[in-house]
Design a protein around this nucleic acid. Structure first.
Length: 220
DNA sequence: GCGACAG
DNA sequence: ATCTTGTCGC
C-alpha cells in the first residue's frame, strides 16, 4: 500500500507557506519509472454546502486506459481555497483516497500544477513528496507566461515564470485549448508530456482525470 | 498603487 | 469548483 510521509496541517496562510518552503527541497528529479503500466488520476468534487468535498482516484492501465482500481473519500474542507495554497485544501482527502488503493500506481496525474507555481510547489509536487511517488500536474488553466502552441495535436510551448521553464502548454487535441503540464516529483517534463499525450488520445483532458472526475461527481 | 491569482 | 441541454461547426 501507499505510505504517506508525516506532515503538518497548517491552519493559517503564513503557516502553509512555511510548510511549502520546508517541503520544496524534497522534490526529486530522478527516479522516474522505466515504464508506466498504471497511472492514477486524482480529482476533487465539491458539494452544495461548499465545505463538503469528494476526493476520487482512478487507476488506469496504460496504454489500455481501462480502470483497474478506484477509491472515493468524502470529507470536509479543512482549508479555504487560496491561490498558491491549493494543496492544503485538496491534498488531505486525496491522500486518504490514495491510501485506500489496492494497487500502487506508477505515476500520479494530478488536477492542477506542479512546478508551475509561485513557489515551485504546486499540488503535484506536494502529493509527490508526501507519497514519494512519481507525479505530474495537468492543469486546465495556465499559471505563468506562454505563447500559444501550434494547432496540431502534440504541439507545445514553454511556460515560464521568473525567466525559467516551469512547464508546458501542450495541445492534446487539434484546435482545442491546450492543457498545462508541469513536473511534480520524480518525472521529467519531456516524459510528462509524452505520458499526457498517451493518456489523452481522444479528448482534451487525460483519461485519468476524466475517470476520477466522473467518479467524484457520481458520489456527490 | 493596480492587477492577477491552479480548483 | 459550480450554475447547465441542446446545438452549431470541423
Amino acid at each position: 500500500m501507499i505510505e504517506v510521509r508525516e506532515h503538518e496541517r497548517p491552519s493559517t496562510v503564513s503557516e502553509a507557506v512555511a510548510v511549502q518552503q520546508r517541503l520544496r527541497p524534497l522534490v526529486r528529479f530522478d527516479g522516474q519509472p522505466a515504464e508506466v503500466r498504471t497511472a492514477a488520476g486524482l480529482d476533487v468534487a465539491y458539494d452544495e454546502s461548499s465545505d463538503e468535498l469528494v476526493a476520487a482516484v482512478a487507476v488506469l492501465d496504460v496504454p489500455a486506459l481501462s480502470v483497474v482500481d478506484s477509491t472515493v473519500v468524502r470529507g470536509r474542507a479543512e482549508f479555504p481555497y487560496v491561490p498558491g495554497l491549493f494543496a492544503f485544501r485538496e491534498a488531505p482527502p486525496l491522500l486518504a483516497a490514495l491510501q485506500q488503493l489496492s494497487v500502487v500506481p506508477d505515476v500520479l496525474v494530478c488536477d492542477g500544477q506542479g512546478l508551475a507555481h509561485p513557489r515551485r510547489f504546486g499540488l503535484a509536487c506536494h502529493l509527490g513528496v508526501l507519497t514519494d511517488l512519481p507525479a505530474i500536474g495537468v492543469g486546465k488553466t495556465p499559471m505563468g507566461r506562454f505563447d500559444p502552441p501550434g494547432e496540431p495535436r502534440g504541439a507545445w510551448t514553454s511556460i515560464e515564470m521568473d525567466g525559467e521553464e516551469v512547464g508546458r502548454a501542450l495541445r492534446t487535441q487539434e484546435h482545442v485549448k491546450p492543457v498545462f503540464v508541469s513536473v511534480g516529483h520524480r518525472y521529467a517534463l519531456d516524459a510528462a508530456c509524452d505520458l499526457v499525450l498517451g493518456l489523452a488520445p481522444k479528448y482534451r483532458l487525460p483519461e485519468t482525470t476524466r475517470a476520477a472526475d466522473q467518479l467524484g461527481r457520481r458520489a456527490g
